[in-house]
C-alpha cells in the first residue's frame, strides 16, 4: 500500500489529497459552468472571466507596479542631485499612501464618479450621480492633506532631534 502511494506520488508529483482537492475544484467549476450554458449571451461570461484575470495580471498590476517604481526612483533622484545627505524624512510613503487610497476609491467607484450607467442609476434611485466626482476630489484632498500634515510633523521632530547635541541624525 505504502509502495503504491509512493508510486502515485512520484508520477503525479504530490500527495493524493492534492489530486482529490483539485478534482473537486474542477468538478464544481465544470458543473457551475454547464449551468450557465443556457443563459443568454453566456459566451460573454467567459470573456469577462478571462478578461478579469488578464485585466489584473497583465494590465493593472504592471501599471501600478510601474507607477510605484517610478515614484520611488524619481524621489531618490530628486534627493541625490543637489544634496549629498539623505533626506531627514523620506517623502515616498507620504505621496504613495494617499495616492493609493485615492486610486483605490477611483477604481472601485469609477462608474458613479464618471457617471456611467446614468439612466439605470436614476431609474433605481431617483437621484443623479453628479455629486460623486466632487466627493472623490474631497476625499482625495483630505487624504493628501492628512499625509502632508503628518509629514510636516515628522520633519519637525527630525529637525528638533538633529539640533539636539549627540543625537544620531539618521533618517526615520
Amino acid at each position: 500500500m505504502r509502495h503504491r502511494l509512493a508510486v502515485i506520488k512520484n508520477f503525479y508529483g504530490a500527495a493524493p489529497l492534492h489530486l482529490l482537492a483539485l478534482a473537486v475544484c474542477f468538478a464544481l467549476a465544470g458543473y457551475a459552468t454547464s449551468q450557465t450554458l443556457s443563459a443568454p449571451h453566456w459566451p460573454w461570461i467567459f470573456v469577462w472571466f478571462a478578461g478579469a484575470v488578464i485585466g489584473h495580471d497583465l494590465v493593472a498590476f504592471p501599471l501600478y507596479a510601474l507607477a510605484d517604481r517610478s515614484l520611488v526612483r524619481a524621489l531618490r533622484a530628486l534627493h541625490r542631485s543637489p544634496a549629498p545627505t539623505p533626506p531627514l524624512v523620506s517623502a515616498v510613503n507620504h505621496v504613495r499612501l494617499p495616492a493609493l487610497g485615492a486610486g483605490l476609491l477611483l477604481l472601485l467607484f469609477l462608474p458613479v464618479i464618471i457617471q456611467r450607467g446614468r439612466p439605470s442609476y436614476t431609474d433605481a434611485t431617483g437621484r443623479t450621480q453628479q455629486d460623486y466626482l466632487g466627493h472623490w476630489w474631497l476625499v482625495t484632498a483630505i487624504l493628501f492633506a492628512v499625509s502632508a500634515v503628518v509629514y510636516a510633523l515628522r520633519l519637525g521632530r527630525a529637525l528638533h532631534h538633529r539640533r539636539a547635541p549627540g543625537d544620531d541624525p539618521t533618517p526615520l
Binding site: P40, H41, V112, G117, Y121
Partner: peptide, 8 residues
C-alpha cells in the same frame, strides 16, 4: 452602481 456594462 447600476452600470450594466456586460451583456449577460
Amino acid at each position: 452602481q447600476y452600470w450594466y456594462a456586460f451583456p449577460f
